[in-house]
Simulated assay, not measured.
Amino acid sequence: MDYFEKYRYPIVGGLVGALVAICIFTIGFWKMILLLILVALGIFVGLFLKSTGIIEQFKKRH
């Protein structure tokens, strides 16, 4: 466990890099770029809705 704590970020970075490489080889470069853009857009919309409280207001009305 001490080894993981010492090298946590390089290990996580290597795993993320391997996952991205596998996705690029299986679904293609441009589809992977589109996937990353859509995920980022979804995160942005989710954070915006949470910060404005729109969802909570909608739930309270119905």
Rank of each mutant, 00 (worst) to 15 (best):
M1S: 14
M1E: 05
D2I: 11
Y3N: 05
F4D: 00
E5H: 12
K6F: 11
Y7R: 03
R8Y: 08
R8Q: 14
P10Y: 00
I11M: 15
I11R: 01
V12P: 00
G13T: 04
G13C: 02
G14F: 12
L15A: 14
G17W: 00
A18C: 08
A18G: 10
L19Y: 09
V20A: 14
V20L: 15
A21C: 05
A21S: 06
A21K: 05
I22S: 02
C23F: 03
C23I: 14
T26Q: 06
I27A: 10
I27H: 02
I27V: 14
G28C: 12
F29L: 15
W30I: 07
W30N: 10
W30L: 10
M32E: 01
M32G: 08
M32K: 08
I33Q: 03
L36H: 07
L36A: 15
L36C: 09
L38N: 11
A40R: 03
A40E: 02
L41Q: 07
L41G: 13
I43V: 13
V45C: 12
V45W: 06
V45D: 02
V45I: 15
V45S: 11
G46Q: 04
G46W: 10
F48Y: 13
L49F: 09
S51Q: 13
S51T: 10
T52G: 01
G53C: 09
I55A: 04
I55C: 02
E56G: 10
E56P: 07
Q57A: 14
Q57K: 14
F58K: 06
F58I: 15
F58L: 13
K59C: 00
H62L: 13
H62D: 02
